Each structure stands twice: as structure tokens, then as C-alpha cells.
Amino acid sequence: MLKAGLFGLALLAGCGTVENMSQTLQLQVKGDALHVDGLINTRALRQFTQALDDNPALREVVLGDVEGSIDDEVVAEMGYQLRERGLNTRMTADSEVFSGGVDLFLAGVERSVAAGAVMGVHEWKSGFGSARDYPRDSSEHDQTRDYTEDMLGSDAFYWFTIEAAPFDDVHVMTRSEMIKYGVVTR
């Protein structure tokens, strides 16, 4: 349990310079599903878009082991593409998805998480501070808060993630939390 999460946090804390120079996201099409594993970095957007364009029959994106992201803008762009194409998202019993991977998961029209899956959240951090350092009305919250509201109809989940764990830790969500914040639809 949590095999990728703490490793991912270490990568994220290192600013991702090396990770952004290589392909760290693995994509595999199986039937009508796109399986996603790895770290979401700047190169991931091109990979993801190409996979979607090359496979118009896709119905869902299955997140396996996604340790997070080092580029929140890329996650948002991927998420908006996923939603615009009407795709669902799913986590299997073996899935472990953290941080920016959870944000990508939110983009599914229908979202399901199998029993046994691990979904981990924490506050974000930039070179200028962490989310908790900024007042709620700060523009520093706008991008991710707006994205969360676009995907879930409310920003309550955004505020939950900030309060659930500091950046250098992770909070594993319970099923009741997933339901309460609208993370799952089925």
C-alpha cells in the first residue's frame, strides 16, 4: 500500500527537472480503455492527446499507479480534454492514485473506485509557499479551485485536499469522503 505515493512526493519535492525531460507517463490501450500509470509531467499532455486522437473508440481512462504530477497546468488540460470527449474514469482494486492523478480522475463523466484502491490527497506547494500559506480569497487558489468546481460542481473537495494533509504527507481518502465530496459517481 502507498508504494508510489511517498516516492512520488519525493519526486515532486525535487521540482521535477529531470522528470520533466523524460516520458514518465505510460499509456496502454486495452479495448475501449486507456490505462494510465506513472508521473504526469509536461510531456504527458502530448502523449495523452495523441492516445485519445489515435483511439476515438475509447470510453474510459483507467488510472493504475499514478504517483502525482509536476505540472498542474498539464493535469488541467488533460482533464478538460478527457471531460470534453465524454470519457469515464475508473480505479481498479490495485490502483494507487495520488495528488495530480486524483485531479485527473475528477475529469471523468462517470467516476468509479473499486474497493481496495488507494486515493491520496494533500495540499499543493509552489516555489513561493504552500496552499495553506495563502488566504482563501487569494488568486493563488484560482486555477485548481476553478478546475475542481468545473469537474465536481463545487470547490468543497479542493478545500478538503488542502486541509487533509500537508504537502509532504498524504491523506488516503475513505469511501465516505469520496462520496461526500462527489469524487465518485458510482
Rank of each mutant, 00 (worst) to 15 (best):
E60M: 10
V61K: 03
L63S: 05
L63D: 05
L63Q: 02
L63W: 05
G64T: 11
D65M: 12
V66K: 05
V66L: 13
V66R: 02
E73L: 12
V75M: 10
V75R: 07
V75G: 04
V75P: 06
G79S: 05
G79F: 03
Y80V: 09
Q81G: 10
Q81V: 02
R85Y: 09
G86F: 06
G86K: 06
G86W: 05
L87T: 09
N88H: 15
T89F: 04
R90N: 12
M91K: 03
M91Y: 01
M91T: 08
T92S: 13
D94P: 01
D94L: 09
D94W: 07
S95L: 10
E96N: 10
E96C: 10
V97R: 02
F98Y: 15
G100L: 02
D103T: 09
D103N: 10
D103Y: 13
L104K: 03
G108F: 01
G108W: 00
R111G: 04
S112D: 09
A115S: 14
G116V: 01
G120D: 09
H122G: 05
E123C: 03
E123M: 06
W124N: 00
S126W: 07
S126F: 13
G127M: 11
F128L: 12
F128C: 11
F128N: 15
G129Q: 00
G129P: 08
G129E: 00
G129F: 09
A131E: 06
A131N: 06
R132A: 14
D133N: 11
Y134W: 11
R136Y: 04
D137K: 07
S138N: 08
S139E: 14
E140A: 15
E140T: 10
Q143C: 06
T144C: 06
R145F: 01
D146E: 12
Y147G: 00
T148E: 03
M151T: 00
L152E: 02
